[in-house]
């Protein structure tokens, strides 16, 4: 031990560089994440291939059913479902990237800087939202080529709800990744959430085609109402489902962002 008087030292007189603002820090994290994603675009492309395959290989099977959906072209009904699928699946896998970053020591290195810990989450979510936006545009563009017809406002509104849902799922996945720090926990959780959501939200086919019991079960899924709201926006059928879908999107967004922010801010995460 030192022989110096063991009293706590006074605060230093040095002027420290001031910590970056929340927005600045979010921007730095976002830029870094985007740069890394663009340098290895395999995941962005793989994420897009699945819905495109659905669009090309499954969409034609729906065409004969167009009349029973009340639309001229089945793609007007199908693309909104694929948007939600893209939003949920693509973003839910964000946590795997976070676990890899944790293992490489990146998260801890960032957490020991004075930058806001919430910014570490928000910068990552922004990357996922931008990626989803680009994928959504490609999907809508392809759908248009296949005969989808909808108003510009309707499509933008549908895309907006998709982005909200995607941001929520990205927040949930990043949070889960930070808590568990393990792909082995993350993978079964993501799968067990994704499959029922896919089947009970009427993503591939509207649940209105099915028996009453299935419709009742589907009504419990918030994502079913979001799919319906996006479909409504595409077909021009604005109504009570638009409202419900919007409310659910915002509620899910607020809850998952709040949980994510809390987790990232915790001292011992």
């Amino acid at each position: 031990m030192t022989t110096t008087a063991p009293t706590a030292p006074a605060a230093p007189a040095t002027v420290l560089p001031s910590a970056p603002s929340f927005l600045r820090a979010t921007g730095i994290v976002f830029r870094r994440q985007l740069r890394i994603a663009l340098r290895n675009p395999a995941w962005v492309i793989i994420g897009l291939v699945q819905p495109v395959l659905y669009l090309v290989l499954f969409g034609p099977l729906l065409q004969p059913l167009s009349a029973s959906f009340g639309v001229e072209n089945a793609y007007t009904i199908f693309v909104p479902g694929l948007l939600v699928q893209l939003g949920i699946f693509g973003a839910l896998f964000a946590g795997f990237g976070l676990v890899a970053e944790w293992r490489a020591g990146v998260i801890e290195a960032e957490r020991v800087t004075p930058a806001s810990r919430t910014a570490l989450l928000f910068g990552r979510i922004l990357r996922d939202v931008l990626q989803l936006f680009a994928q959504g545009l490609v999907l809508i563009g392809l759908g248009w080529a296949f005969g989808l017809r909808a108003s510009l406002g309707g499509m933008l509104f549908g895309l907006l709800l998709t982005l909200l849902l995607g941001a929520s799922c990205a927040a949930a996945s990043n949070t889960l990744g930070l808590i568990t720090k393990s792909e082995d926990v993350l993978a079964p959780v993501v799968n067990s959430i994704a499959l029922p959501v896919l089947l009970l939200s009427g993503i591939l086919l509207p649940l209105s085609l099915g028996p009453t019991w299935l419709q009742v079960v589907g009504d419990v899924m918030p994502t079913k109402h979001i799919v319906d709201a996006i479909r409504g926006a595409f077909t021009g059928g604005w109504g009570i489902e638009t409202l419900w879908g919007s409310i659910w999107s915002v509620v899910i967004f607020v809850i998952l962002m709040w949980v994510g922010t809390r987790t990232f801010r915790k001292e011992n995460a």
Binding site: I36, R39, E101, R103, A104, G105, V106, E108, A109
Partner: peptide, 8 residues
């Protein structure tokens, strides 16, 4: 455990 992304 390090501090950088391997691909960066």
């Amino acid at each position: 455990s390090g501090s950088t992304q391997p691909e960066a």
